[in-house]
Write a protein that binds this DNA or RNA. Structure first.
Length: 1099
RNA sequence: GGGCCAAUAGCUCAAUCAGGUUGAGCGCCACUCUGAUAAGGUGGAGGCUCUCGGUUCAAAUCCGAGUUGGCCCA
């Protein structure tokens, strides 16, 4: 780019961003930036792999923007940052999408299609989805290593998972278990608890009475899953709960029912009994040991009838105040709690349901039926045999498969676990090793989650995943689900393979470790024969959460490539949304601890979700979303990024806002305007920043130059501090405030006249050097947020002198030479005074272009007097005042009246309950002298006896309880502006520091300048109408009706001619030039201008 | 049903940790300015600080109970 090249008049994000993409390509900007830091200290960032489904949504966009801003910032600080993006490409979601595509309904369809073909389809689909995400992320301007993302389906990555699992096995944390799990009957696989989604559904709600044996009566249970009744093994009660026996009457017959006392009314109502009577009161303990007859003993001949079955037991999951009857139907085959209790009781587990949700032959009459469809028949069977007390329906939340939305069933199957409960203490300890932002996420939410976490079921009975690297002896490969616990355990004899090389060495077949694909279709055929035993592979694949859990070493291609693991691991930073506490934050901690005894990450930045403008959650499936592509279409990438990054990244959700987007565009446009303003002048004057450096003009710097440079230093310091605390939103706020408030609204406004000077001057050069430094550092500070516009500005400012890209720049550090806190405070005062002065002027009806003879500043403290006296000239300029006068607090104007403001922190403790009343009186008081005695007089009527100083001294001898009294420290006196003077209080940070009085009286000299400036302004407007060049000379024709005014303007003839570049003042013919009538403060004037013919170019 | 987080101006947030007369930006209305101008300036309207209790002389702030939203868990 050429230095100071012509730039667009208007900030046009789309064209600019397109241009910058091309430029980055041309100069290999990303590659150069990475190379530039290759010798730096390493920083190991790990990308949490998004699941490859569809395109990027606003949440992902926010996430990647956050990653990008911190990676760029760290690079600028000199770090060699690991930035390999990743994609999570296995798992049920892709399988179900591919099944839909192929029109499949269940596993049989897949088997017919062929495992190999199906896996290939999944691979193709995942790669297709990946492309969409890749191009989106690149389009957002995110700089990561897009040429080489890690993919969880690649052999190296899958090997990383095998390695991690084998390390856990080495530590004896891998176990095959016969356990109660959630099963999706459609997908025919176990799913993890965190894959279960709950939604409200209508289900049967039945009360069933089990006939007691050996005694009269029935125990009543309640369930919403009639299909689990065939597997009923026992009934559970709360040992300490209160129960009653109720004799209930219906249709002339009566029966004795046992239920929990708190529930008996509801139960009997449900049973529509005509009348009832409590005949017995018992505790849960009394019921224990009662035996009953299985309610479906005829239909299910194989029902549990072992020793101890069909009896009442105590269980801690029973609540006599909750849903149901206080007696819980328990089927260890269909629920985790029941299962655990059943185990404790030493019962065999009866589960007559297969992985497809269909009853097996154990279910007798119901064999072959899908469980939910069997509900009806079971209900009618129960009604027929007289067990049904009431059959209703109820709406409650029930678990569903997260992918296909099928209702889950609880069954007992063989699964493989990582027994993280064995290392729970280590997990909790490792939590403490990581630093979280915000910290409460770790100490509350995450710790709770980890404390409650059960063993990790890592096996899935599916196809598209990383196969378990487990081989077990062939002869023991018995069918699962048989509930037979007597056979030898597979996990005692298993072989766990850790790498491709080990695989090639140990399997019976010829395998090339370089080329082998580790998917199920390949490895299923491999066998291992050792010591005369043949081992076959366990057919399961891993839970997809296991894939990403190994990302910290998978990213490094470890163990295949062991060159960087030692140096880099564990990760310095991971950065994801709060839903990952149960997901990736957890799975990584679990795997890191199980495999390596350590947390795999040191810092966690946890952000929130992107919400709709009205606060609803975004949802792709319900089409409730803001598409990032639309945001880009409307405002561009830099605006979208800065908007997203202006939100708190720690824990809070972000509400998307089109208003917020527009505001960011306005801010960036302000920066653009600030940037392009000095360019024409710099070009014209041949300003060369490499020669006219800030250092070379240091002695010519004016107060405002020094001030804006001081502000730049504080802004850098503040931003760095915020960014290091992961609050890029606050850093951005500081930067934008600097750009908008300080640079644009104050510095540029003030410095414009210096740049308009035609002659070369030290002042102008100092201004150029100053604004050049400010702009150049500003775009470096902005570069991580808005990489496109920063690049364009940087390129235009530096030409060939800088790096090829702003992103190679070092993060700007504070330059001590320009730090000046006193000056910053001074200007803060001056700006407050100026603002108040503008206000006072408006009250006095005097525009800024009319000078005022005198501005009086009544200062409350010496700090203000110092500031004003150091910068009187500047203040005269800014307020357009001929003279500035300062009046100190001691030398106050006698015209002024005073009131008092109460300091509640002093008044409150002294006056107690009456403090509010006293405060109001003080605020309303008007006194001539700001002293306590006058004030006490003014508020005498609200003060009680003994509360004023006078009364105190009179009663001093009394020795009563001391009464409160007004003290100097309780009040501060405030000036009240007299009507004839325009005055406005000024202050900042909420404190008043004085009052600005504008004396708006007129003199001839002032009127002369005022009218002259009115004329100048109008001529300038007319020049603009004609689109004249700034330098172009004109002829001016001025006709003013009012002779006095005409004379006043004539006195400033020289000023007018110079400002409007009029070489001649004479008549302009009606036909020539540009003529306009004006009304200036009630005076009619006609102005005509005509450009002078450009003289022949002469050397 | 349980845990965590949030709730303050029309919108986005600050002030909450350490109690002391609620603030900023954006938006809106009026006026104003005009050689960076799709800008800028001044003023104005706009708040039972989600509700109800409690502690305290004093609560947006501390405590308890609830409401609504988000996430997580069951």
């Amino acid at each position: 780019m050429d230095r100071f090249a012509e730039v667009d008049d208007q900030y046009d994000p789309h064209e600019l961003e397109g241009r910058i993409f091309d430029y980055w390509d041309d100069v290999d900007a990303y590659e150069q930036t990475v190379e530039h830091r290759s010798d730096g200290e390493t920083y190991f960032f790990v990308d949490g792999p998004p699941y490859t489904s569809g395109s990027a949504h606003m949440g992902t966009t926010w996430n990647k923007s956050l990653k990008d801003v911190y990676i760029r910032f760290l690079r600028m600080q000199g770090y060699d940052v690991t930035d390999r993006p990743g994609y999570d490409m296995h798992g049920l979601p892709i399988e179900t999408r591919v099944e839909e595509r192929l029109g499949f309904e269940n596993k049989k369809d897949i088997e017919e299609f062929g495992e190999e073909n199906f896996i290939q389809e999944c691979k193709d689909y995942a790669n297709e989805q990946l492309e969409g995400l890749q191009s989106d992320f690149q389009d957002f301007g995110v700089w990561m290593d897009w040429d080489d993302p890690y993919r969880t389906v690649s052999p190296e990555y899958m090997e990383a998972a095998w390695w991690g699992f084998s390390k856990a096995a080495d530590r004896d944390l891998v176990e095959k278990g016969h356990r109660s799990i959630s099963q999706c009957p459609r997908c025919e696989t176990a799913i993890a608890n965190n894959e279960v989604e709950y939604e409200d559904v209508e289900d049967p709600s039945i009360y069933v009475a089990f006939d007691l044996e050996d005694r009269e009566g029935k125990v009543v249970i309640w369930t919403t899953t009639p299909w689990t009744i065939p597997a009923n093994t026992f009934v559970a009660v709360d040992e300490e709960g209160e129960y009653v026996g109720v004799r209930a009457e219906k249709d002339g017959t009566d029966e004795l029912l046992y239920v929990a006392e708190p529930k008996h009314e509801a139960v009997l109502k449900a049973g529509r009994y005509d009348d009832y009577e409590v005949v017995e009161e018992l505790t849960g303990e009394d019921l224990i040991g009662w035996s009953y007859e299985h309610p479906l003993s005829e239909e299910v001949p194989d029902h549990p009838d072992h020793e101890g079955a069909c009896e009442v037991y105590a269980a801690d999951y029973v609540d006599t105040h909750g849903d149901g009857t206080g007696l819980v139907h328990s089927a260890p085959g269909h629920g985790e709690e029941d299962f655990e209790r059943g185990r404790e009781l030493g019962f065999p587990i009866f589960c007559p349901v297969g992985g497809d949700g269909v009853y097996t032959d154990d279910a007798g009459a119901y064999e072959g039926q899908y469980v939910k469809e069997a509900n009806e028949e079971i209900i009618s069977d129960l009604e027929e045999n007289g067990s049904m007390l009431a059959a209703e329906t109820t709406t409650h939340s029930y678990g569903h498969c997260w992918r296909c939305d099928t209702g889950i069933v609880q069954i007992v199957t063989d699964q493989w676990f990582i027994t993280i409960t064995d290392v729970k203490d280590e997990l909790l300890e490792n939590i403490g090793e990581s630093q979280w932002y915000p910290d409460w996420a770790r100490d509350n939410r995450f710790r709770d989650f980890v404390e409650d976490a059960p063993d990790w079921n890592v096996s899935r009975q599916r196809y598209w995943g990383i196969p378990l690297p487990v081989w077990t002896p062939e002869e023991r490969a018995e069918p699962r689900d048989d509930g037979d616990e007597s056979r030898a355990r597979d996990d005692e004899e298993m072989i766990v393979i850790s790498t491709r090389e080990e695989l090639a060495e140990r399997v019976d077949q010829d395998v090339d470790p370089e080329t082998v694909d580790l998917h199920k279709d390949t490895v299923d055929d491999l066998t291992i024969t050792e010591d005369g035993t043949t081992y076959t592979r366990v057919p399961d694949v891993f839970d997809v959460w296991l894939d990403s859990s190994v990302a910290t070493w998978g990213t490094l291609d470890f163990p295949e490539d062991d060159s960087r693991f030692e140096e880099l691991w564990p990760a310095d930073l991971i950065l994801e949304a709060h839903d990952q506490t149960r997901g990736w934050f957890w799975s990584q901690l679990g795997m890191g601890t199980a495999a390596l005894g350590q947390s795999p990450y040191e810092q966690v930045l946890m952000h929130g979700h992107a919400l709709m403008p009205d606060g609803r959650a975004m949802s792709k499936s319900k089409d409730i979303l803001v598409d990032p592509h639309e945001a880009i279409d409307r405002h561009g990438r830099d605006v979208m990024r800065t908007f997203l990054l202006s939100n708190n990244p720690q824990g809070d959700d972000m509400r998307f806002s089109w208003d917020g987007m527009q505001t960011m565009e306005n801010h960036l446009r302000t920066l653009w305007n600030v940037f392009r303003f000095p360019l024409p002048y710099m070009r014209l004057d041949g300003f060369d920043p490499t020669e006219t450096t800030l250092e070379s003009v240091e002695s010519d710097l004016e107060a405002l130059d020094e001030w804006i440079l001081a502000r730049l230093q504080s802004t850098k310091a503040e931003m760095t501090e915020h960014l290091e605390e992961f609050r890029q939103d606050r850093a951005l706020e500081a930067l934008l405030e600097f750009v908008v408030e300080d640079v644009s609204r104050f510095y540029v406004q003030a410095v414009r006249e210096r740049m308009w000077e035609e002659e070369d001057s030290a002042s102008k050069r100092a201004a150029y050097a100053t604004i050049y430094r400010v702009l150049r550092e500003t775009v470096v500070l902005l570069a991580p947020y808005a990489p496109f516009v920063s690049e364009e500005i940087y390129g235009t400012l530096t030409g060939d002198d800088g790096h090829d890209t702003v992103h190679m720049e070092d993060w700007p550090t504070v330059d001590d030479r320009f730090v000046d806190d006193r000056l910053e405070t001074d200007v803060a005062f001056l700006r407050a005074i100026e603002e108040a002065g503008a206000n006072a002027r408006q009250q006095a009806g005097r525009k800024l272009r009319w000078p005022v003879p005198r501005v009086v500043i009544a200062a409350d403290d010496d700090r203000v007097i110092d500031a004003v006296s150091r910068h009187t000239g500047l203040l005269e300029d800014r307020l357009n005042a001929r003279e500035i006068e300062v009046v100190s607090a001691e030398d106050r104007w006698e015209e002024l009246a005073y009131s008092a403001e109460a300091d509640m922190s002093e008044l409150g403790p002294a006056f107690g309950g009456r403090a509010g009343e006293v405060m109001n009186a003080l605020n309303e008081a008007r006194i001539d002298e700001p002293d306590l005695a006058a004030l006490e007089d003014a508020v005498a009527d609200v003060l009680e006896d003994g509360e004023s100083a006078e009364q105190r001294s009179a009663e001093d001898s009394g020795g009563d309880e001391p009464r409160a009294q007004l003290e100097e420290s309780m009040v501060s006196f405030v000036t009240e502006t007299p009507e004839e003077i325009a005055g406005t209080a000024f202050g900042f940070d909420g404190d008043d520091h004085g009052v600005v009085y504008v004396d708006a009286s007129l003199t001839e000299d002032i009127e002369s300048e005022g009218y002259a400036r009115e004329v100048i302004r109008r001529v300038q407007e007319m020049r603009k109408d004609l689109e004249l060049d700034v330098e172009e000379r004109i002829v001016l024709d001025l006709e003013i009706d009012d002779d006095r005014v005409a004379d006043l303007v004539a006195q400033r003839d020289g000023l007018v001619r110079e400002e409007v570049r009029a070489d001649e003042i004479r008549d302009v013919a009606d036909d020539d030039g540009h003529r306009k009538e004006w009304d200036v403060e009630g005076v009619e004037m006609t102005i005509a201008i005509e450009p002078l013919a450009t003289p022949e170019a002469s050397d």
